Amino acid sequence: MTDGQCANARRAAWLAVLSMAAVGITACGHKRQPQPVPPTATAPPVYNTPSYPAPAPRPSTGGIPITPVPEGGISAEDKEFILSHRPIYSEEGQATWYTAPYKGRKAANGQVFSDGALTAAHRTLPMGSLIVVTNLRTRQASAMRISDRGPFVPNAILDLTKASAQSIGIWPGSGRVRVDVYGTPKPMDVGGRWCVQIGPFTSASKAIRFKEKLLRDYAGSRVIEFSGERSYWVRIRPEGDDREQAEEMARRLEPDEGVAYLTRLD
């Protein structure tokens, strides 16, 4: 086999791996079962995706614009981009899977959540990031995009849709994965709109009390409480959605229940 034939064979194999997707999937409940394995980062984030536009200027506060992803999560152009580029950031940790608690629920990027899309939730990668997730036990890999925020459970770094979890062989259940980031619509290491999400609380009254404490302790911050699936949460956005302030809050906050998670909104 010539060098050109070998290259074509490798290319065809990658396209086959990245094209795996579940079809006709319906919503269903789930139970998260993360293993007690702490995530580990393997490289510092670097912004190096010339095919994506630079981020537009933004106000310091206010709503978060929609960051759309292709229908189904991944496009043919995404696969071609992965084949011709190297990852700009990698990390390893536990992945779980999730589904929407009700039909029509919107993901954090502003689009309606779909069990059948090759998408995932991550707490801090820029919305719309193009990633390849590899099951470290079976070596199954699949391309997907970040369209949501989570997982808000300890010792897990990624939440997969049903289609994404099936494409790498961890549905139903969880598994240790490597996340390779190939492209980010916005820089990873500078800017961004940051907050801290705290919970879960077992009652609305506990969440409200913690919200009131944060309003007293962090004047100028925006604080809300909201309900999740059989749980209650509090979110604090520092003035200007500043990352350094959010990181300091995440380190200092010690809620009576739950955990304080550093989270990127955009």
Score class of each variant (00 low, 15 high):
35 Q>V: 11
35 Q>G: 13
35 Q>F: 04
35 Q>L: 12
35 Q>D: 12
36 P>A: 15
36 P>R: 10
36 P>I: 10
36 P>K: 10
37 V>E: 12
37 V>T: 13
38 P>C: 09
38 P>L: 12
38 P>M: 12
39 P>E: 05
40 T>F: 08
40 T>L: 10
40 T>V: 15
41 A>K: 13
42 T>M: 09
42 T>I: 10
43 A>D: 11
45 P>N: 07
46 V>I: 12
47 Y>F: 09
47 Y>N: 05
47 Y>P: 03
47 Y>Q: 05
47 Y>H: 08
48 N>F: 08
48 N>L: 11
49 T>K: 00
49 T>M: 04
52 Y>D: 00
52 Y>H: 06
53 P>N: 01
53 P>K: 02
53 P>E: 01
53 P>Y: 03
54 A>Q: 13
54 A>I: 07
55 P>F: 00
55 P>V: 08
56 A>C: 06
56 A>L: 15
57 P>M: 03
57 P>R: 05
57 P>D: 06
58 R>E: 07
59 P>K: 10
59 P>D: 11
59 P>G: 12
63 G>W: 08
63 G>N: 09
63 G>Q: 08
63 G>M: 09
63 G>R: 11
63 G>C: 10
64 I>N: 01
64 I>M: 02
64 I>A: 02
65 P>E: 06
66 I>G: 01
66 I>M: 11
66 I>N: 08
67 T>G: 01
68 P>G: 05
68 P>N: 05
68 P>W: 04
68 P>Y: 04
69 V>P: 02
69 V>K: 00
69 V>S: 01
69 V>T: 07
70 P>L: 11
71 E>C: 12
72 G>N: 04
72 G>W: 05
72 G>P: 04
73 G>M: 00
74 I>Y: 01
74 I>P: 00
74 I>M: 05
74 I>S: 01
75 S>T: 10
75 S>M: 09
75 S>Y: 07
75 S>Q: 09
76 A>E: 14
77 E>L: 13
77 E>N: 14
77 E>V: 12
78 D>S: 08
78 D>I: 04
79 K>T: 07
79 K>A: 07
80 E>M: 13
80 E>V: 14
81 F>Q: 04
82 I>R: 00
82 I>S: 01
83 L>P: 04
84 S>M: 12
84 S>F: 10
84 S>E: 15
85 H>Y: 15
86 R>N: 14
86 R>D: 13
87 P>F: 03
87 P>K: 02
87 P>M: 03
87 P>T: 02
89 Y>L: 07
90 S>W: 01
90 S>N: 12
91 E>V: 09
91 E>H: 11
91 E>P: 03
91 E>A: 11
92 E>W: 05
92 E>P: 02
93 G>I: 06
93 G>N: 06
93 G>P: 03
94 Q>W: 06
94 Q>H: 08
94 Q>I: 09
94 Q>G: 06
95 A>S: 09
95 A>P: 00
96 T>P: 01
97 W>S: 00
97 W>N: 00
97 W>T: 00
97 W>G: 01
98 Y>K: 03
99 T>Q: 14
99 T>C: 15
99 T>M: 13
99 T>V: 08
100 A>I: 03
100 A>C: 07
100 A>Y: 00
101 P>W: 00
102 Y>Q: 14
103 K>H: 11
103 K>Y: 12
103 K>S: 13
103 K>T: 15
105 R>W: 09
105 R>Y: 11
106 K>S: 08
106 K>P: 03
107 A>Q: 02
108 A>M: 03
108 A>W: 02
109 N>Q: 06
110 G>Y: 03
